[in-house]
Design a binder for these strands. Structure first.
Lengths: 143, 143
DNA sequence: CGATATAAAGATATAAAGGTCTTTTATTAT
DNA sequence: ATAATAAAAGACCTTTATATCTTTATATCG
């Protein structure tokens, strides 16, 4: 559905938002331990998110990653677009190169229902929605 | 969403059903050309489907692949299960190892809506439904 | 039987995803 | 300045998906 990379990215951003109070920054080592994900791999992912401006980062002592003013308000679809691209919502279900309403595969129309459900779900949820769920104890990030 | 392999499998089965009249069998070369897919890769896929009994095959002169009595009635979810497994419907959206109603990730409940839409779509469509669509000229398999 | 056609099987190749390790660069504190 | 710290960058490694090529087994036909 979405790549492992993208799942890590979302979980990382939620963790940053959770622990965020004012100017607190979190190092990649702590993040990786909290989420039980591979440290260096996670590092690359967060570095990429920082380069794209979805989170912030500073080097050096007391540095780390942090939420910037965009982070909490991001829709999941924004994160997915940044990490995986929007292929899930565009590629032909049967893998044909060119599939469109004027040249459809036999699943084209029916699969649109799934696409819509997926898009709605990913567009209606923001990072801060996930943070709220974790804060209420309704769900967890690690494990 | 589904693997390329699985898309090839479905398109191959629909093609077999389309060209099927009585005892006609189709060779892998013809199938690969019709669908513009890699011949030897497609061969392995169809061999696997044959081994699992979703289609039939015979070796030797005038041999090839053909629909057996199960093929036309198969739901897409059956083919997906055989080729990719049911991971799409079961794996945690955020990639956690263990995710369940009693230990959910923050997307667990919301993503269920997508899962349901996907399952309904794949369970309500059979190979013969796709064949009918192509036969009516509503859609195409190759390209 | 022997030749031939075709799926089946196996070995190998290539690309992408996922993951690890090392070196460099920027920042902070002393 | 210098040392320490942590992200950034880059060079690998591993696994899985995708794809190709070769050989083997089996069925058909003359």
């Amino acid at each position: 559905m979405i790549s492992k990379t993208c799942g890590y990215a979302i979980r990382g951003m939620v963790l940053l938002s959770l622990e965020q109070n004012q100017e607190k920054k979190i190092g990649i080592q702590e993040i990786a331990e909290e989420l039980s994900v591979p440290q260096h791999f996670m590092g690359k992912i967060l570095q990429d998110l920082a380069k794209r401006g979805l989170i912030g980062s500073v080097k050096g002592p007391h540095g780390g990653f942090y939420c910037n003013n965009r982070t909490a308000g991001l829709q999941l679809i924004d994160v997915i677009e940044a990490v995986d691209g929007l292929g899930i919502l565009k590629k032909c279900f049967l893998g044909r190169d060119e599939c469109s309403a004027s040249n459809p595969c036999p699943m084209h129309d029916d699969f649109d229902g799934c696409r819509t459900a997926i898009f709605k779900t990913f567009a209606s949820k923001t990072i801060s929605d996930l943070v709220a769920s974790v804060n209420l104890g309704e769900s967890v990030l690690m494990g």
